[in-house]
């Protein structure tokens, strides 16, 4: 269990070669309550992670001295510290390779500080509970984050990966209206274009699989012009 998290400040190690990103992220994450140390090179980062173990590592995959995935494997051989990788390569191969090498989550550049912060918190929460309570329950709905399965009223739901991510994101914030812009940024890691219907069509599918319709919503409620919320049981 990370010593810092939950008791106050989590110590983060940022391994990123671009000075501007390092500076901006150090400041932005610092403002969001983390203690941030940074290293510009892979080997420096590895040394730092061994000498002064952080609660979480944010690792850029495009480092000048060593491929980020290789560094991740080296790091995994000595430490179980949670790692979020940042990649400019959005092709699935690289992401899958990084997750296979032991990354806990990933963000695609250009990411926002809020999106990264949300992922940092989620990963720290998961690693602090260590899988024991990785299930979110809202009324009849149970979402198992580790097993990536969802059950509604005892019936398992057959969800596509994005639908699961969407449901998990909403279930973690019951009764909170989340804008489509936020969903696109946080779940899809894509910039909002103002008229994008990607979120809407996935919400339609999700509704169907939850066994409800837009006209008679039960769990998923659309607040016109604002966003969507997953409604938990009263009280």
């Amino acid at each position: 269990m990370p010593p810092g998290y939950g008791l106050g400040v989590a110590s983060l190690l940022l391994i990123e070669d671009d000075l501007r990103i390092r500076t901006a992220l150090t400041r932005a994450l610092g403002e969001r309550g983390h203690a941030v140390a940074s290293e510009p090179t892979a080997m420096g980062g590895l040394q730092h992670a061994i000498d002064d173990p952080p609660d979480l590592v944010v690792l850029d995959l495009g480092l000048p001295d060593l491929d980020g995935t290789q560094l991740l494997r080296m790091l995994r051989s000595v430490s179980q510290v949670p790692v979020i990788v940042a990649t400019a390569r959005d092709d699935d191969r690289v992401v899958v390779e990084a997750l296979d090498a032991g990354a806990d989550d990933y963000v695609v550049k250009p990411f926002s500080a809020d999106a990264l912060d949300a992922r940092i918190r989620a990963v720290l929460r998961r690693s602090s509970t260590d899988g024991a309570a990785s299930t979110i329950e809202v009324g009849d709905l149970a979402v198992d984050l580790k097993g990536r399965t969802a059950v509604l009223g005892g019936r398992p739901l057959d969800l596509r990966p994005r639908e699961f991510d969407l449901l998990a994101y909403l279930a973690a914030r019951p009764n909170e209206v989340v804008s489509k812009r936020t969903l696109l940024a946080e779940v899809w890691q894509q910039p909002y274009g103002g008229a994008d219907k990607t979120v809407d069509v996935h919400l339609s599918w999700l509704r169907r699989k939850l066994g409800e319709s837009a006209d008679e919503p039960q769990l998923l409620h659309t607040i016109r012009g604002v966003g969507v919320k997953l409604v938990g049981p009263p009280g």
Binding site: D18, R20, A28, A88, A113
Partner: peptide
């Protein structure tokens, strides 16, 4: 992709601040 997206990331972080 790396060369274009890295400066945009910096730009976005700056803009957000």
């Amino acid at each position: 992709s790396h060369r274009l997206r890295t400066p945009i990331t910096a730009l976005r972080l700056e803009a957000e601040s």
